[in-house]
Amino acid sequence: MKKFDIIIILSLVLISTTSLALHILSSNKKYENKYAEIYIQGVLYKRIPLSKNMEEITIPIKTKLGRNVIHISGGKINMADADCHDKICVKSGTIDKIGQTIVCLPHRIVIEIKGKGKAETDDISY
């Protein structure tokens, strides 16, 4: 270990922890309503309002790249099934906070939760 090594480690830890903290802080903001947006190849496919007492929905998505099944219940979203080779989106688990995302890279699908209302500006969506 030399001088630069310590500097590198410290600065990287600092950068990553501060940006992580900022991200967690921004996702804990209270919004009046939450909604989930599903993007396929960068194009908005569906916008679903989320609430605690909503019905269970299953959304099958079939594109020429493959098949995905999105499952939403009680305001929580998870990828129930996918036929990609790494299954990273299925392993991502359940998301329910604003700013969280589930990504299926091989099938170019992004699910993200956004918030609207109360908080003065909608700084999550752009």
Binding site: L12, I15, S16, T17, L20, Q41, G42, T101, V103, V110
Partner: peptide, 27 residues
């Protein structure tokens, strides 16, 4: 490249955690 392929810049939110993991594996 991942955020370019899915055309969504918000994937960068994964980077801090990946960076911490990267420090560990790098050592």
């Amino acid at each position: 490249v991942a955020s370019i392929t899915v055309q969504n810049i918000r994937i960068i939110a994964y980077l801090p955690v990946l960076m911490i993991a990267g420090i560990g594996t790098g050592i």
